[in-house]
Amino acid sequence: MPLLKGGHAVADAWVHLDDAEPLPPDGVAVTVSGERWERERAVLLARAAPVGVRLGNGAPVEPLAADLPRLGLIALHFPKFSDGRAYSQARRLRRAGYRGELRATGNVLQDQLLLMARVGFDAFQMAASDAERRWQAAVGAYAHFYQPRRTVA
């Protein structure tokens, strides 16, 4: 499962904890589910290591607003590539000032990469082994965009 950042496959520096999994020693960057974040927010924020949240695509992003500066990673999920809720979550998170890594997970395919990048995703967990090539093809497909506001010739 290549993780694409900046167009390159990179190693995932994060440990993604299940809800029941104990916290590793401080120093290890972890992500937790949105539910666990709500429950253990204080403990997680007390750690020195980076912390991230994996948000379900039905969850509102507003409850995270106050914590955004402390989060190093937010992972948004595409259970199917055709379920587009995470696009709006991404827009709302970026609008709320989130500057950390915004990672697309789940059914992440070549033909949606550029759309995802345009709403603020900057990391992509893909199943395809040739993810770098697909990224190049996807971003090379368009140089003209009507949004957020078309460029006037």
Binding site: G84, Y87, L114, V119, F145, Y146, Q147
Partner: peptide, 13 residues
């Protein structure tokens, strides 16, 4: 038309 064409957020409603 222009605003909605290839809209990054609203292509998988």
């Amino acid at each position: 038309r222009q605003w909605s064409t290839n809209h990054p957020e609203f292509s998988f409603l």
